[in-house]
Computed example of a mutant assay.
Amino acid sequence: MNTPRTVLITGGNRGIGYTIAEEFVAAGHRVAVTARSGSGPEGSLTVVADVTDPASVDTAFTTVEAALGPVEVVVANAGITKDVLLMRMTEEDFSSVVDTNLGGAFRVVKRASTNMIRARFGRILLVSSVVGLYGGAGQTNYAASKSALIGFARSLTRELGGRGITANVIAPGFIETDMTAALPDDVQDDYKKVIPAGRYGSAAEVAKTITWLAGDDSAYISGAVIPVDGGLGMGH
């Protein structure tokens, strides 16, 4: 049995983030999620936060700390996409995606790190994407933001590794969500042809990887990129 921890997941009100929160709750941890709207699963505390606003992030942490104790595991999952070809991409298309996906991770991890350093324990988990390494046409903004999390995690590992803190990146591939379910059948079939596993992953498969990386057995893994993509991104 893993030691029960206080866990904060950003963007935990839907999709993969919601499933990650469910998995941590089921494993007996004290779980909080941030959301701009909606709420996390039963058994979790939901705090309203906008990861692009440092004051909002600080308030969310203060609320969680008062209710559940210092955050020991942080999962930077909140992210947005604004897919458009480079020639048509606006400054706002680029800056808003980078500020949410990369800047949001920076703000959340910076705020979490203070207590982690004091406690000499912490698990920092950054949700990237296979696209961060594989690339995606029309996704220069998104891919850049997701790739940047790797340099961020590896620098964190060098800064904080001696204090019992790990920082790892999870790179999901195509995962079964409402978004992928809405794709036409022929498009889905084309995607599945390039995935060696021949299928999409489940959000639970991503969540179980994250809960394992947050647990007692993974203390010597840091600065790693863990793909959960059915082999799609091999060699990247």
Rank of each mutant, 00 (worst) to 15 (best):
T52Y: 04
F24P: 00
K193I: 03
R123L: 07
V131I: 13
I124S: 03
L8M: 15
Y220L: 15
V109T: 15
V206D: 12
G233Q: 05
A203P: 13
L102R: 06
Y220P: 00
R107P: 13
S96Q: 12
P184L: 07
I117S: 01
I226W: 02
E23V: 13
A78F: 03
I170Y: 01
I124R: 08
R5W: 14
F174A: 08
T90R: 12
Y220S: 12
L160W: 13
G43M: 08
M234W: 11
I175A: 09
T10A: 06
A214V: 10
E159Q: 14
A78L: 03
V131F: 00
P70A: 14
T6S: 14
K146F: 05
Y134K: 10
G162C: 11
T34M: 08
Y191V: 14
W212D: 03
V130G: 04
A49E: 00
R163G: 07
T62S: 14
V98E: 09
V64H: 06
F121C: 07
F152P: 01
G40I: 07
S218F: 02
G12T: 12
S56V: 08
V7R: 02
G38D: 10
K193A: 15
Y200F: 15
N168V: 04
A219H: 14
Y18I: 04
P196Q: 14
P4W: 10
G231F: 04
K82I: 07
M89H: 08
R5M: 13
L156Y: 05
L213D: 02
V228R: 10
G79K: 00
I80W: 01
D83N: 11
R123I: 02
D189K: 13
F24M: 10
